[in-house]
């Protein structure tokens, strides 16, 4: 018997049977979205950085790379660049260790687990500006509750106290302490997401494998470092990738807590670009500062995606 001829589709819905047309149609919204909201602003930033545009005179007159030269020569820029790296890597290291501990703890069954989960997720669900303003009060130069606790336990504000005789620590007023405060608050904010990602990764490790390791004589440390962490590596690298990119480009915490101060000691590239380009009105230099992040971010993203892929393939 002759095989039946396949009916050729026709009519206005013909594209549904053409995989190439259909796939183009399905990916189009994402492509258009990225092109409009990422691609065009990115190109615009490149043009502006090569021009002499200001908020007073936004016309694009080509000036070559002179903006980049000026920016690099600026000591505040170099301070910001250094701070950005410190801010990013210190907060991500903190997040990585803390989220790992939290995720492992949340794998266990205990009373009131739902409450702990809720509290851990809270910083992420609350608007970040609100949370950071809360921290602003916590770090207040006179009324800081943390200073109050330290005074109460005798670590601060009396002769011979470990943290000094002053009645306050001035968290956001001393360069080193301000940088540490900004980093810790940012870590606090990133922690919930990283914990949830790691928790998902931990849950995905087959129970048999962990039990086999236990029967094979491995103690907690060997299980953690030889089994759990290697198996979590792909998902951990994605959590870190996300965190690094997010932190490099974020200025919320710095802007609300210190506005880059005292004396630019907590300035990061994102906040410096904002102050220079928007508040200072020098669009061209602001764009040049912002673009400085691009090669770093592209490099980090490529590296992390490769790492994730290699772990997956193996």
């Amino acid at each position: 018997m002759a095989p039946e001829q396949k009916k050729q589709p026709h009519g206005p819905f013909r594209f549904r049977d053409d995989p190439r047309l259909l796939s183009a149609l399905m990916t189009a919204p994402a492509v258009i979205y990225i092109a409009l909201l990422v691609g065009i602003p990115f190109l615009l930033a490149v043009f502006i950085s090569l021009s002499d545009a200001t908020t007073g005179d936004p016309s694009l007159d080509y000036v070559g790379i002179s903006n980049f030269r000026t920016v690099i020569g600026d000591p505040v820029f170099r301070q910001s660049l250094k701070n950005t790296f410190i801010f990013t890597f210190a907060s991500q290291a903190l997040v990585l260790v803390m989220s790992k501990i939290l995720a492992l703890a949340l794998m266990k069954e205990f009373r009131g687990k739902w409450l702990v989960r809720f509290l851990i997720l809270l910083p992420w669900t609350a608007p970040i500006a609100l949370g950071t303003i809360g921290w602003l009060w916590m770090f207040d130069s006179i009324f800081s509750p943390m200073d109050w606790v330290l005074r109460y336990v005798g670590l601060l504000g009396r002769p011979g106290a470990l943290l000094g005789v002053n009645s306050n620590l001035y968290w956001l007023g001393i360069p080193g302490l301000a940088m540490a405060s900004v980093t810790v608050v940012h870590a606090w904010r990133m922690l919930p997401l990283a914990t949830v990602i790691l928790l998902a990764g931990l849950t995905a490790i087959p129970k048999d494998i962990l039990e086999a390791a236990e029967v094979d004589g491995a103690g907690f440390r060997q299980r953690l470092f030889s089994i759990i962490i290697p198996l979590l590596l792909p998902i951990m690298s994605i959590a870190v990738l996300f965190g690094v990119v997010f932190t490099f480009t974020d200025m919320t915490v710095v802007y609300i807590l210190t506005r880059g101060g005292p004396v630019q000691s907590t300035q990061v590239l994102a906040s410096w670009a904002f102050f220079k380009g928007i508040e200072g009105g020098d669009l061209a230099q602001g764009a040049a500062i912002a673009l400085f992040l691009f090669p770093v971010l592209a490099g980090v993203a490529t590296l992390m995606l490769r790492l994730a892929r290699r772990t997956e393939v193996n």
């Binding site: 087959p206 039990e211 086999a212 390791a213 198996l231």
Partner: peptide, 10 residues
């Protein structure tokens, strides 16, 4: 020896 063998995949 587990039913799934539980070999360490990495």
């Amino acid at each position: 020896v587990f039913q799934s063998y539980a070999l360490y995949p990495h």
